[in-house]
Design a protein around this nucleic acid. Structure first.
Length: 567
RNA sequence: GCCCUCGUAGCUCAGUGGAUAGAGCGCUGGCCUCCGGAGCCAGGUGCGUAGGUUCGAUUCCUAUCGAGGGCACCA
């Protein structure tokens, strides 16, 4: 299905054509037709300012243009009326019958309701988390995970076939450090004096890993190479990361090892293509360096530089250091080349704001390869601060500081973590207030929304207990309050479309809150099982609540949250 | 210094160039015998500042002030 706004835009296009054909309006290029949801009641369900935007070019008054358009609107079963209002808006009101019919549509489609075909046949990839396997998933990574997974869900709902990928950064110096750190801890436990490498990992979890190794292998690894420790640590970290993500119901379809790009030579192949294209030079310092910088670099072996400045960068970038080891950037460019060659129609990268600059270099690299980076969308999100009693809880590598996903879930809940990290646009810094989130009260939107589902489930339970049936309900017995809810439910398609095309899944969180805010007073007023309610009316209302429950379930699942039966 | 984000209600934040800018939290006062209290109803003087584009700007552009992030032969 498509959002109703698309159907209405089509009606307007046809009306404009018809008005031109009958010479009521002069010829003009068909404009982009904007459809919006009016903010106030009495302004219909959908509105278009198209007449106002055309008025000037046509030298006609906006309301006259609107008049011409409305007169040529083709009939549509879902529209009850189209009227001109205010400065020249055309307001559309949905028909009550159409709205009532949505109850059966929702029940028939269930979890597939509001699944759009906007991108049917298209393949999208969402790369997210991609945290180094050198430590646990932190709160910052968790925002990345929640955002990426929600974008993936929303893209699926919009019609894409989606692959979730994790770029596993298991090559390079960091992994050496990881291996050597575990090795040092291992030897220390065995009573041998061993120093952590400079810039080694000091976390408590490194000691845990070493302790486990002692338990499993005793002192037999005393003479072992650091690589043995690295492989062990990597495998353990990988398992830990997956387990943490599973806590908030996140699974990736693919894990792409950075290592593989070295093993199959793609890293070096990428460098060669760049060189062939004239973007690589060998020098001790970049060509635009100041005298001071050049003096500092004097005597250093040459590195391989990428002419990033050709694409407007401030300076050229090192791809291969003077010791022959690539920087992070080269495999990253190779990885994106690999991605592009896999033929996705859309590639989404979810990155922390601190990586924004880095991606620009990668994008320049992609251009230098002669490839087009336009199918890659980068979603930058700001940092997360953990607050307790209004004071920031400082991140620390030591344990017990609420800085891991595991701790966060333990302190709050998977649903609360997802809702609160999803509920803000990526561009804002989040202060994650543990006290507010832990608080399981009516002030917490997580429970407010879930309770709507619980209440629907409660009605169904009670109806079943009383042996009541809701089939063949006469939906004409539903009142305006129910129709109001259905109008809002119908808006989900537009929310999905917007969230998918703008990569802004936080819109779902707001929508869910609004939907629940419409539901609760309704639940209060429109009783299904009250003794005053006529049996036929009760039947229709039971049918309605069955549909409402499915709508909440759908919305909660889109946010990766659970839809509980009871609380 | 340069680049990127962000300044909207007491606080935390929504708001695709359109009609009277919205939620949540906090605060105050009311409301439930039957599916339900993690509920319902009522209470509001706010778009950082200055220009510009436009029929119309919280939204786009420029400047300015303020906050955060980034400016490695780290990832």
């Amino acid at each position: 299905m498509k959002p109703l706004s698309h159907h209405i835009a089509n009606l307007l296009s046809e009306a404009l054509r018809a008005a031109q054909a009958s010479a009521v309006l002069p010829a003009f290029e068909p404009p982009t037709i904007v459809i919006e949801r009016p903010k106030r009641e009495g302004q219909g369900d959908y509105a278009s300012p198209v007449a106002m935007s055309l008025a000037k070019a046509l030298s006609r008054k906006p309301r006259e243009v609107a008049e011409a358009v409305v007169q040529h609107l083709p009939p549509a079963p879902f529209i009850a009326q189209a009227e001109i209002a205010g400065p020249g808006f055309i307001n559309f009101t949905l028909s009550d019958d159409f709205l009532r019919q949505q109850v059966e549509t929702i029940i028939a489609l269930g979890d597939d309701w509001a699944k759009l075909d906007l991108f049917v046949g298209k393949r999208a990839q969402v790369e997210f988390v991609s945290a180094n396997p050198s430590g646990p998933i932190t709160v910052g990574h968790t925002r990345n995970a929640v955002l990426g997974d929600a974008i993936a869900r929303v893209l699926e709902a919009a019609g894409y076939q989606v692959q979730r990928e994790y770029y596993f950064n298991n090559a390079g110096n960091q992994m050496v450090m990881l291996g050597q750190s575990v090795q040092a801890r291992y030897l220390q436990i065995l009573g041998q004096s061993a120093e952590l490498p400079e810039n080694g990992y000091q976390g408590e979890y490194i000691i845990d890993l070493a302790r486990d190794l002692v338990q499993e292998h005793g002192d037999s690894l005393r003479e072992a190479d650091w690589k043995v420790f690295k492989d062990y640590a990597e495998a353990r970290m990988f398992a830990w990361i997956k387990r943490s993500l599973a806590l908030i119901d996140i699974q990736h379809d693919a894990f792409f090892n950075e290592n593989s790009l070295f093993e199959n030579g793609e890293v070096w192949r990428t460098l060669e293509i760049l060189r062939e294209n004239g973007y690589i030079y060998s020098a001790a310092e970049w060509e635009g360096a100041s005298e001071e910088e050049k003096a500092k670099a004097a005597g250093r072996a040459p590195a391989q530089w990428f002419r990033s400045t050709r694409f407007g960068d401030d300076k050229d970038r090192v791809l291969v250091k003077s010791d022959g080891v690539p920087t992070y950037t080269l495999p990253d460019i190779a990885y994106h080349r690999n991605k592009i060659e896999r033929g996705f129609d859309l590639m989404v990268n979810v990155l922390g704001a601190d990586h924004g600059q880095q991606y620009k270099v990668v994008a320049n690299g992609i251009r230098a390869l002669g490839l087009d980076p336009s199918k890659i969308k980068v979603i930058l999100y700001q940092m997360v601060r953990i607050m307790r009693n209004g004071v920031e809880v400082r991140m620390s590598k030591r344990k017990g500081n609420f800085d891991t996903l595991d701790d966060l879930v333990e302190q709050t809940s998977a649903d609360a973590v997802r809702y609160h990290l999803l509920g803000r646009s990526p561009g804002t810094t989040i202060d994650f207030d543990l006290d507010a989130v832990v608080k399981q009260s009516n002030e917490n939107p997580v429970y407010y929304i879930q309770n709507a589902h619980v209440r629907c489930a409660g009605i169904a339970r009670e109806a079943a207990a009383r042996g009541l049936d809701d089939t063949e309900a006469d939906l004409s017995l539903l009142g305006q309050a129910e129709l109001k809810f259905l109008r809002k439910a119908l808006e989900l398609s537009e929310v999905i479309e917007l969230a998918a095309t703008e990569y802004e899944p936080h819109r779902l969180a707001y929508y869910a809150q609004e939907l629940a805010a419409l539901f609760h007073p309704l639940y209060d007023e429109v009783r299904a099982l009250h003794s005053d309610v006529e049996p036929q009316v009760a039947r229709a209302r039971l049918r309605f609540y069955r549909a409402a429950r499915l709508v909440f379930r759908r919305v909660l699942r889109l946010m990766g949250m659970s839809a509980p039966e009871r609380m």
